[in-house]
Design a protein around this nucleic acid. Sequence first.
DNA 1: GTCTATAAATAGATAGAC
DNA 2: GTCTATCTATTTATAGAC
Lengths: 206, 206
Amino acid sequence: MHAGTTLARPSFKEQMLAAREEAIITAVNRLLAEKGFDAMTVDEVAAAVGIAKASLYKHFTSKEELAAAAMVRVLSRAQLFLDTVSSGLPPLDKLRAVVRWTLDLQLAGQMPALPSQNSSLRAVLLASRDYMDKLMAISDRLGGWIEAAQREGSINPQLPALAVLYTLYARGCHPVLGFLKAGGQHSDEQIAELVLGTCFDGLRAR
Amino acid sequence: MHAGTTLARPSFKEQMLAAREEAIITAVNRLLAEKGFDAMTVDEVAAAVGIAKASLYKHFTSKEELAAAAMVRVLSRAQLFLDTVSSGLPPLDKLRAVVRWTLDLQLAGQMPALPSQNSSLRAVLLASRDYMDKLMAISDRLGGWIEAAQREGSINPQLPALAVLYTLYARGCHPVLGFLKAGGQHSDEQIAELVLGTCFDGLRAR
DNA sequence: GTCTATAAATAGATAGAC
DNA sequence: GTCTATCTATTTATAGAC
């Protein structure tokens, strides 16, 4: 939130500040993954970080800003991951890799739940330049890969590209992962591969 | 909640009571679909029904009971729908019909959102005989159809039947529907067919 | 910036008259 | 059973000392 990224080398104090805010966001991120925005309380966040609630409000001006920071960080990490996806890969494999990344994040309990349609968080996110810019940038890159995959015939060309994009995003909050994990019958690796398979190949036999 | 289903013919008063409770559950159902359990308030429910909050508590003992009643009603309706699915249909088509039913419910804004992992509602549902019995009964019937479909080779036999079941359930809270609907590019019918297609056939070309 | 203490608003739930 | 009025606990957010 504070400008820790000036051009000059960050001072020790600034580094401490940045580290603390990282810790805050990490706690928020976990709580958002566990119980979602509405059920998460600022008291819990403060307790998890180990600081007073009032101190939290020196860093972030509201509960919504707190959550938004976590959402932005996830998007930033997604962008970093996109950068690591080999450009030589066929577009379908790139998309697979991205979905796999979101599944791993979920299995690690680090995927914040999407705000519900009517949440106060939603309005803040839609108004956040940072969040929307990152979301657009990610969507553009994925959209390019989707269309390339459709041109080469590896993704069903009859599907609207937007529908494909949303379907990929939806994997980020797929409750199936939690159910299967709670069942205890499968390893995380097996679960991820299962869901990845049903996403791209469907339930029907091929 | 109250026993409106005695063996004797229900009196006028009992019918009024049942109708009121139906109206309450309908309002709760819509609110659960719109914003989920955590964000829904009892005040909103009372306002939507047009009665005082205290009156609500004469019918249902807590917010959780209120929501549970709505969840149970959805399961009851699902059971009724299962009964109407022609027994002559191939198992894959039966499963398709069920998913289609849940998609229609969602598009109508009448599918209550699943409680988050850590919600107080979750505990109440797990402890509710009514809810769990219905859920088990539905799961058993769907499980039978899934296994039959796998035996005849129309559903991928390599997938664990439970994974298939959860995947079907997950369609009941698929955020893609909301996104596509908000986009305004497609009719409800098109959206339902799109999601149905990606569920059974996957994103990849066939 | 961090803390303790508290304000202000809202939530779920209940009392008691009718 | 329905209402108004109220209680109690919780929650977001802030004041003010250090």
